[in-house]
Computed example of a mutant assay.
Amino acid sequence: MEHNSSFSPHQFQPEPTMHWKVLTPFSPGTEVGWIPAHIRDPNLTFEVIPSDYDHDRSRRLSGLREWIDYARHAIRAWFKKPSGSDAPIGYLTSFPQLPICLALIKRVTFSNVPIVAWCFNLGSTYGGVKGVLARFASKAIDIFVVHSTAEIEIYSKWLRLPRDKFIYVPLSVAMKPLPAVSQAADRFVLALGTANRDYDGLVKALTPLGYRTIIIAGPKAMQNLDLPAFVEHKSGLPLEECHKLSRAADLIVISLKDVEAASGQVSFLETMMFGRPVIVTRAPGTVDYIEDGKTGMLVEPGDVEGLRSAIAKLWNDEDLRLRLGNAARTSVENSSTFKAVAPKMRQVLNSFAEG
């Protein structure tokens, strides 16, 4: 029996069953990056709708100018025809503002297109007209991906939505190799980040110790602080310089103010991935990532004496710093990288695909 020599293996390649438009405020180009770059699934295709604005992730609240930028981005995405795909469309977003803008469009157009809100982290909930609009829009969001288990309860109550619309997935970072470290002139403690930081408490904890300290933060986080001579404030550093200082520091402190909100994760994950020991305030955004005494140290909120004791303990124990730092890097590599969380994103997105 003769076989058809015109057979092509491509004719049995499955057609995509879902085409996802990807909207993030940190994607100015059309190249698929972020977590979708690590998904290899013939059922799923991705198209990035580029951002054309600056996104300040340290800003606690978005102003009118920022909301206009997010709304423009959402409108462009909504009305842009997919490139080369006839598959059903969905929207995959990062940060809360974009899915809220898309959801408002979805509600007023009576659409049923799915919206997956990845990295839905508000920092704090709010009332008034903004709260009413958020609840109105959020009913059109199909899945909320949050990065602390506590946020499931917080947001489901605030938005008055079922808990099963929220799932916890660890926040992810782009894993980087360990850079070469030049020998620092002096040992130092590093603290970094702007949003929700308790630098007043940190300075009080450090003052009796006198350890050289570098704080990398925006000016608004340092307002009304009288810094002692051993504390140096740096602002506006490029990310590469922040990473260099993170790798060179003896230890990193992320001291938080409002423990009702999830914050600080990016800062401590990006230092843990360089194998540095961290001291972090116990809060909703930290307890899912730091195992006290194993991958870092947790201190109680507002406990200046406890923070001082933890800093002194790590400063004076090289073996402990090495053990916690190595465990921290392993923890990030195993659970908090784009590659590590890609299977969970694939599972979420495939739940909307037509079989």
Rank of each mutant, 00 (worst) to 15 (best):
A328T: 02
L192D: 04
E291W: 11
A103D: 00
I35C: 07
P208E: 00
E300C: 09
L122Y: 03
E15Y: 13
L298V: 03
M345G: 02
S58N: 15
G325M: 04
S111L: 08
A328C: 08
P42L: 13
L102Q: 04
H243P: 00
L322E: 15
A261V: 05
P170M: 07
L122C: 02
D303S: 09
L23G: 04
E305Q: 14
P114M: 11
V189L: 07
W34T: 03
R163K: 15
N350V: 12
I167V: 15
V259A: 03
L61W: 10
V348S: 03
W315P: 04
P208K: 05
P9G: 07
S351Q: 06
T271S: 14
T330P: 02
T207M: 14
K139T: 10
S267I: 00
H243A: 06
G201R: 01
I115S: 11
E240P: 03
R135V: 02
N350Q: 13
A340P: 00
P177N: 03
D303V: 06
N350L: 14
G123M: 02
L192F: 09
R323Y: 06
I252W: 02
K130Y: 09
K244L: 11
P219Q: 13
Q13D: 13
L92W: 00
P219I: 08
A103H: 01
F188D: 08
V132L: 15
P99S: 07
T271M: 10
V278M: 05
P42H: 06
D319I: 07
K313H: 01
K294Q: 09
M297F: 08
S351L: 07
S6N: 14
A262D: 03
K157C: 06
S335F: 15
V304R: 01
L239H: 11
L237H: 03
P208W: 03
Y155F: 14
S309Y: 05
P277Q: 12
F166E: 05
W118S: 13
K165H: 01
I152N: 08
F79K: 10
I141N: 09
I141H: 07
T295A: 08
E300V: 08
F188T: 07
E300L: 13
Q347I: 06
A221C: 06
V181G: 06
G306C: 04
W315E: 06
P99R: 10
L314R: 04
I279H: 00
R212E: 11
N112Y: 08
S331A: 15
S124N: 12
G84E: 11
M222V: 08
L206W: 04
Y70P: 01
E153M: 14
H10A: 15
L202M: 05
R346K: 15
R346F: 12
G84H: 10
A174C: 14
V287Q: 03
K234F: 05
P28M: 04
N43C: 12
L245I: 09
P50F: 06
R323N: 14
A74M: 08
E260P: 00
R135P: 00
R247P: 04
R59T: 11
Y91T: 06
Q223E: 15
L314A: 08
L237M: 10
S172W: 05
